[in-house]
Design a binder for these strands. Structure first.
Length: 196
DNA sequence: CGCCAGATTGACT
DNA sequence: GTCAATCTGGCGG
């Protein structure tokens, strides 16, 4: 059973409104090269983030490296730790603006056995159905901060994937102060999202 | 240098 | 449903 990897998405894929990119990313494949193996999963849940105007973002109260990256070149990964877990984001926004997309959940398609080992669980639905979980399953840590996901040579890339039948949207999860518009996107009827 | 907040997870009642 | 653990960057003194 061999699957061929599709093309890596170009950088200008991320040069768009953060919410639009979040929606477009559904069905795409997050691909991670780990110890000569390939770990990959279909993106089934995302959240859009904005910069200063977003109370949930750390950039809201600070002006450091995270903010600069969020307002900088699109298509780069942002990896940040919260509550001792790692969250995997991609910078995506219009020119002269700031924002990003948080990958919240994947549907594993390659390297599943390796993911089970990394996560220490056997249940496939428990592998990547949460931001901290998918980072652990793909062995992502803060060394992935600022790597470009649009370069073939990167250890983590996002590639062309599958057509999504139905996209649903809702308010974000786990955010203390949310904006008044729904910025969470997910594949309807997927069993791999973090929450129904 | 110490303190605080934060986008989560998982175990327990 | 509720609650505590655990990590890092930013900010104040």
């Amino acid at each position: 059973m061999r699957k061929k990897l599709k093309a890596v998405l170009p950088q200008d894929f991320y040069l768009d409104d953060s919410a639009r990119v979040a929606e477009k990313l559904l069905g795409k494949v997050l691909c991670r090269v780990y110890g000569g193996k390939v770990l990959a999963g279909i993106i089934v849940e995302t959240e859009a983030y904005y910069g200063k105007i977003d109370p949930a973002s750390r950039a809201y109260r600070s002006n450091g490296d995270l903010t600069r990256t969020l307002y900088g070149d699109v298509g780069k990964a942002i990896v940040y730790g919260v509550h001792g877990k790692w969250l995997f984001n991609v910078v995506a926004h219009l020119p002269n603006e700031g924002g990003g997309v948080l990958i919240r959940a994947l549907e594993p398609i390659m390297g599943i056995e390796e993911m089970k080992k990394l996560r220490g669980v056997e249940n496939i639905f428990e592998l990547t159905n949460g931001p901290g979980k998918l980072s652990q399953a793909l062995a992502i840590d803060k060394s992935f901060h600022k790597i470009p996901v649009y370069l073939e040579s990167s250890p983590a890339t996002i590639r062309m994937g599958f057509e999504v039948k139905e996209v649903a949207r809702s308010f974000r999860i786990g955010v203390s102060k949310d904006l008044s518009i729904p910025l969470r996107f997910y594949v309807k009827n997927s069993r791999f999202i973090s929450k129904l």
